[in-house]
Amino acid sequence: MADSARYHREKFHRYILEAQKFDSGFVSLPNRYVDPYSGSRSYEKINLKGTGTILSYTIIHIASDQFAHTTPFPVAIIETDEGARLTVMVTDCDINDVKIGARVELVFRKIMEEGESGIINYGYKAILI
């Protein structure tokens, strides 16, 4: 699900990986007004370096229509070295090499197209390093 206005709003996270580090230590990639656990509203903005570790993964065999043409594909939950958690596709790899604990780097890639005449949606995927 994507549309142009929503895509515009998310550009900071999808283009430059700008995250928030709250004074509690919680790091969030999505923009938030408040730390969901501590309630703190005090944070600094940080840019993620783009490296991290796979916490878990799956190989998607049955996808929604938007991604059905690319199955099977791996998706992983990764934690960046700064502590931000993301769910991303893992790309450019042998799916047998995707493992818990594997080191990854985030790379800028096309995610999907909004139909035949819509905009192309970009974002980050992970590659194994």
Partner: peptide, 27 residues
């Protein structure tokens, strides 16, 4: 699949191709 995915985080999970079975598979 796309309807059920609305119960996940639309911008930060479903956008990146994960399905509901995919989330439970990672658990």
């Amino acid at each position: 699949t796309i309807v059920l995915a609305t119960a996940s985080d639309q911008e930060y999970e479903a956008y990146n191709g994960v399905t509901f079975p995919g989330l439970y598979a990672m658990m």
